[in-house]
Design a protein around this nucleic acid. Sequence first.
DNA 1: TGATAAATTGACCGATTGGTAAAAGCTTAC
DNA 2: GTAAGCTTTTACCAATCGGTCAATTTATCA
Lengths: 214, 214
Amino acid sequence: MIPRAAKTQRRTRIQEEKEEKILEAALDVFSAYGFRGATIDQIAEAAGMSKPNLLYYFRTKEAIHRTLLDRMLFTWLEPLRAFDAAGNPESEIRSYIRRKLEMSRDFPRESRLFANEILQGAPHIEDELKGPLKELVDEKAQVIRAWIKAGKIAKCDPYHLIFSIWATTQHYADFDVQVQAVLGDKSGEGRFEDAARHLEELFLRGLKVEKPSL
Amino acid sequence: MIPRAAKTQRRTRIQEEKEEKILEAALDVFSAYGFRGATIDQIAEAAGMSKPNLLYYFRTKEAIHRTLLDRMLFTWLEPLRAFDAAGNPESEIRSYIRRKLEMSRDFPRESRLFANEILQGAPHIEDELKGPLKELVDEKAQVIRAWIKAGKIAKCDPYHLIFSIWATTQHYADFDVQVQAVLGDKSGEGRFEDAARHLEELFLRGLKVEKPSL
DNA sequence: TGATAAATTGACCGATTGGTAAAAGCTTAC
DNA sequence: GTAAGCTTTTACCAATCGGTCAATTTATCA
């Protein structure tokens, strides 16, 4: 009878399965229509259950949304967290770009969920942006700044550099329809590699110090 | 009595004014919530008129949305149209970036309207993307390819280069909340110039031929 | 097995959705 | 002024919204 936070504190197998199914369906709907555009009925149907049954596991529409966002935010920042100050600048930037691009390829719905949220003013995650996200970016910006001062990469604004990497990589998930429309349906397979090669070259050439070793 | 396409074929002064006011309000709402998330009541209130009055000028919610998209799509592509094959590659790319960035600064709502539409699968403008947009991009990609062949800029994929410019410039409109959260509310004025300088340097350095004039 | 708790459902709620009908108010040209 | 057409409003509609309730079915475990 007690849906969330059961007495035993341990979640049932059924609970686990159904909640997963709901979140899976909700990710489809929220990422496609945004928070306000999504409806509980739609999510319930996609999850293959009745609306009251869905609301037995998540008390409100917002609860589902929040759970999805929380989950996503953590993994979303993982590539940036992996950004290593001790590593080689070129390979660090290269692998960061690649990791972010892989996420766009493998988790496009998560990317769109996030994009929808930001686009609509980030009403549910403003604190996370101004807190944990900002702190992490500040930290990594310092790393980049150190590389610049050490003459390892060309001078540039670290924050805007990070923004550029975010923008270009996430573009392939968020604006996929447009990318496909422009490129035509040809080259469905090689598309990811083409984008990866292009971005790596663009950023690494753009950051190479003027006179490498002369 | 006949709202749209009046007998006289000429639109009244009042019609002109009210339609403009509706579109202005609708741009606010659609860009903030997406098509499904927006409501006619909300638009009507923002436009300072009753819902039936609004529906006297635009028969459906979709009609408003379509009008906004049609208007926007044309001006949105203007910078790319201005991309001149006869011009100097460096200055053409530089001014294209700047123009796109100016649009993000001056018309953020239009950018978000477009972003929302694409994010949600471009259900209303798929044809425009696969038609006019694709053709225009194909044309300009040829220009870039010619520049590459002539050795004027470094080798790169012209399509992905255009995507990168779109992504990075529109990022400042679409993800403004995130940008502000990360940068803090400091430097509100210089932000645009910082971004412009960063993007110009990134792309121009990234496209410079290896051995400029040796 | 039976009892107890968990899971599921149909019926329903008030509020809001996109949109309509019709009549009243307002402009404008003659 | 007045008649015709343009504009605006009040009242309303069926459908859908997020969510509740009580009752029923199903799983769990002693």
